[in-house]
Design a protein around this nucleic acid. Sequence first.
DNA 1: CTCCTAGCTAACATGAATGTAGGTACTTCC
DNA 2: GGAAGTACCTACATTCATGTTAGCTAGGAG
Lengths: 119, 119
Amino acid sequence: MSLSCHLPNVMAEMCPSRRILNHVTSRWGMLILIALQDGTQRFSALRRRIGGVSERMLALSLQQLERDGLVHRRAFDVVPPHVEYTLTPLGTEAAARVRALAEWVEDNLSRLPPEALAG
Amino acid sequence: MSLSCHLPNVMAEMCPSRRILNHVTSRWGMLILIALQDGTQRFSALRRRIGGVSERMLALSLQQLERDGLVHRRAFDVVPPHVEYTLTPLGTEAAARVRALAEWVEDNLSRLPPEALAG
DNA sequence: CTCCTAGCTAACATGAATGTAGGTACTTCC
DNA sequence: GGAAGTACCTACATTCATGTTAGCTAGGAG
């Protein structure tokens, strides 16, 4: 089994693609990407839209996605603060795939065995 | 913000789709689904193929996917044990989406900012 | 007789992800 | 005057995911 990877390969233990894949599929990262598909949104709009996310986790997840070049942050120097988040071109591509997966889950929930929804 | 959900919606905090989405996008769950796209495979074949997975996590993740109806487990009562894992029709559909995402990450790693790969 | 394989399970240990509570610096609304 | 909104950050606590080690079955290889 290959540890490192010359060509990116998620099956390789040390391949950086793994880290990125985990960011993109993180609990809140996925939902942020999906929410931003509708266009630029402010921090608190995202917070209201993504049910159950804490301020802290929203901030952390947004920073992660920004570092990965998937989300663009634009801050206006006013009081009260005004910050807008937008998908980058790269983020738009990723979001489409994430959304396809999420939508599949939503659309096929009823086909899943009952025990899948418990525990 | 809606806590429960009549229609499945990943933005709703208590919607079961969230749980399933997290299973499917779990660190090892994703890689299992992708690996099984090539067809039926035995436990230890998966273990060798998926770099860095421990026996325990492979077993746990497979059980999770089995409960969710995405993977089918077929055990032969022989010694040494012989167990085969296969994608169900549902699992095949999910795997395609997961793979699309993983492949996108692999193919676009080089477009990501350098700081995305560090940390 | 011992080690090796297969495919697990249980007990225990760690680490990463996530949550909670509080503070910040102002403004507007009541 | 007091509360709420805005977009955070920090310290601390907890929970969950994951890892580590050991053990189990029974046969074949050495």
